[in-house]
Simulated assay, not measured.
Amino acid sequence: MTNAIDTRLADLGLNLPDAPAPAANYVPFVRTGNQIYISGQLPTGPDGLITGKLGQDLDVEAGAEAAKFCALALLAQARKAADGDLGRVRLVKLVGFVNSTADFADQPKVINGASDLMVAVLGDNGRHARSAVSAASLPFGVAVEIEGIFEIS
Rank of each mutant, 00 (worst) to 15 (best):
Gln41Cys: 11
Lys68Val: 01
Leu75Ile: 02
Asp106Ile: 00
Gly63Asn: 12
Leu12Asn: 08
Ala23Cys: 02
Ser153Pro: 03
Ser100His: 11
Asp57Ile: 04
Met1Phe: 05
Ala114Glu: 11
Leu75Asp: 06
Pro46Gln: 09
Leu12Tyr: 05
Gly63Asp: 14
Asn112Pro: 00
Ala136Phe: 10
Val95Pro: 00
Phe97Pro: 00
Ala136Ile: 07
Ile50Asp: 13
Val98Phe: 14
Arg127Cys: 00
Pro108His: 07
Asn125Met: 09
Val95Gln: 14
Ala78Tyr: 04
Gly87Lys: 12
Ser137His: 12
Arg90Asn: 03
Ala19Pro: 05
Asn125Gly: 03
Gly33Ile: 03
Val27Leu: 15
Thr32Ala: 15
Ala4His: 11
Ile50Leu: 15
Phe104His: 05
Pro43Gln: 10
Asp47Trp: 01
Gly84Leu: 14
His128Thr: 00
Val121Thr: 05
Pro28Lys: 12
Thr51Asn: 11
Asp124Asn: 08
Asn3Pro: 06
Met1Glu: 14
Arg8Lys: 13
Val133Ile: 11
Leu14Ile: 09
Ala21Trp: 01
Asn34Val: 01
Glu145Val: 13
Leu16Asn: 04
Val92Tyr: 07
Leu54Phe: 03
Ala105Ile: 10
Ser153Arg: 11
Gly126Tyr: 03
Gly33Leu: 11
Asp57Thr: 02
Phe29Thr: 00
Ser115Tyr: 02
Asn25Thr: 05
Asp47Val: 00
Ala66Lys: 13
Phe97Ile: 02
Pro20Cys: 06
Asn99Met: 14
Tyr37Trp: 08
Arg127Phe: 01
Ala10Thr: 07
Phe97Gly: 06
Asp106Pro: 01
Ala129Asn: 08
Asn125His: 08
Tyr26Trp: 11
His128Lys: 06
His128Asn: 06
Gly40Lys: 11
Ala73Gly: 09
Gly63Leu: 12
Ser100Asp: 14
Asp103Ile: 03
Pro139Tyr: 06
Ala71Thr: 05
Leu42Gln: 07
Ala21Ser: 14
Ser115Arg: 15
Leu91Phe: 00
Gly52Gln: 12
Ala136Trp: 10
Gln56Asn: 10
Pro43Leu: 09
Gly40Ser: 11
Ala64Lys: 14
Ile111Arg: 09
Ala73Asp: 11
Asp124His: 07
Glu65Cys: 03
Asn25Pro: 00
His128Cys: 06
Leu74Gly: 01
Ala143Gly: 06
Gly96Asp: 09
Lys109Phe: 04
Val144Met: 10
Leu12His: 04
Gly141Lys: 08
Arg90Val: 00
Pro46Leu: 06
Leu42Val: 02
Ala62Met: 15
Gly148Phe: 08
